[in-house]
C-alpha cells in the first residue's frame, strides 16, 4: 500500500476538552477499498475519533491527514429534523447535492425503502431513517464512507441486508469505509481491520470469521454466518473505575490472557 492510497490518516492524534483527554495517541488510517471498524465501550472515544478524522473537531495534538478533494459520505448515528421544516425523503436525499430521480430511486431501492420516497422525513421510524441516511451517504459515490453505528435500531434481518449492502458498495466503488460498531464483539464480516478504543487504542486486528470462532455452534446455520464476524480482543491492560490503566502482567512477567 502506498501513501497515496490512504484516504485519511491520524498520527498520534488526541483531543482534549473540559480538562480531560477524550482520546490520545490515535494512530490509524483508512485506505481506498479498506473497511475499518471502531469498537469500544460507551464514552471510549469512537465518535470523537471519527470527528477528528472528518475534521469536525480540531485535534489538540498530533496530525490528521485527509486526502485532498476527498469526497465524503457521512451517516450520523441519528438525525432529528424539527417539525417546522417540511421535508420529504426525496429532498433529504439531495441535501448535499442534486441527484437525478433515477439515482435517488436506485439508492433507496438498495436499502429497501423505495416506498418511502415521498414520505415526510419526520414520519420515519428509527430503522427507516437509518436506511435513508445510509442511502443518502452513498448516493454520490463518495471516496470515503463514514458510518456511525449504521445498523443501530435495525432488526436482525435488516442488519444482515445492510451489512451485505455495505460490502457490495465497497466492492463496486472501491471506497474506503470507516465504521463505528454498536457491538463490542461482533462486527461486519468484510471488515479488514478492527480497532478497539477506550480513550486510546487498546488493541487492533482482523476479525475472525464465525466458522473459526469458538462460539460457532451458536451461529451455525443462521443467516449471520456470512455477514457477521467476531473480534477477539487481546488487551495487555485493563481500565479501572477511574480510567486508570492497569497492566496485566503476572509474577512471571507474562501476560494473562482472556480478559477484555
Amino acid at each position: 500500500m502506498t501513501a497515496s492510497d490512504k484516504l485519511i490518516a491520524l498520527h498520534n492524534a488526541g483531543y482534549f476538552t473540559d480538562n480531560r483527554w477524550l482520546v490520545q495517541g490515535i494512530n490509524m488510517s483508512v485506505a481506498r477499498g479498506e473497511i475499518v471498524t471502531l469498537i469500544g465501550p460507551n464514552g471510549g472515544g469512537k465518535s470523537t475519533t471519527v470527528k477528528l478524522a472528518l475534521g469536525l473537531l480540531k485535534q489538540s495534538e498530533g496530525q490528521v491527514f485527509r486526502h485532498p478533494k476527498l469526497k465524503i459520505g457521512y451517516m450520523p448515528q441519528k438525525l432529528l429534523i424539527d417539525w417546522s421544516m417540511p421535508i420529504r425523503v426525496n429532498r433529504l436525499m439531495q441535501m448535499s447535492g442534486k441527484a437525478s430521480n433515477k439515482q435517488i430511486e436506485a439508492a433507496l431501492d438498495r436499502v429497501g425503502v423505495l416506498h418511502l420516497k415521498r414520505q415526510d422525513a419526520q414520519a420515519l421510524s428509527g430503522g427507516e431513517m437509518q436506511r435513508v441516511l445510509l442511502a443518502r451517504a452513498f448516493l454520490h459515490e463518495p471516496d470515503l464512507l463514514v458510518l456511525d453505528e449504521p445498523v443501530q435500531g435495525v432488526d436482525f434481518k435488516g442488519e444482515i441486508l445492510l451489512y451485505n449492502l455495505i460490502t457490495e458498495i465497497r466492492d463496486e466503488t472501491q471506497c474506503g469505509i470507516l465504521m463505528i460498531s454498536h457491538d463490542l464483539h461482533v462486527v461486519m464480516a468484510s471488515t479488514d481491520k478492527v480497532i478497539c478504543l477506550n480513550g486510546h487504542i487498546c488493541c487492533q486486528g482482523s476479525p475472525l470469521s464465525l466458522e473459526n470462532s469458538p462460539d460457532y455452534a451458536r451461529f451455525k446455520g443462521t443467516q449471520f454466518q456470512n455477514s457477521h464476524a467476531v473480534y477477539t480482543h487481546s488487551h495487555n491492560h485493563q481500565h479501572d473505575i477511574n480510567d486508570k490503566i492497569i497492566h496485566n502482567i503476572d509474577e512471571n512477567g507474562s501476560m494473562k490472557k482472556g480478559q477484555e
Binding site: 469536525l56 465524503i72 457521512y74 450520523p76 429534523i81 441535501m95 448535499s96 442534486k98 463514514v146
Partner: peptide, 18 residues
C-alpha cells in the same frame, strides 16, 4: 441556499460533506 438548508438539517453532515 442548498448549503444553508443542509446546515439547517444537520450541521455535522454538512460540515463533513460540504
Amino acid at each position: 441556499w442548498r448549503s444553508l438548508v443542509a446546515y439547517t438539517i444537520s450541521a455535522e453532515i454538512s460540515n463533513a460533506e460540504i
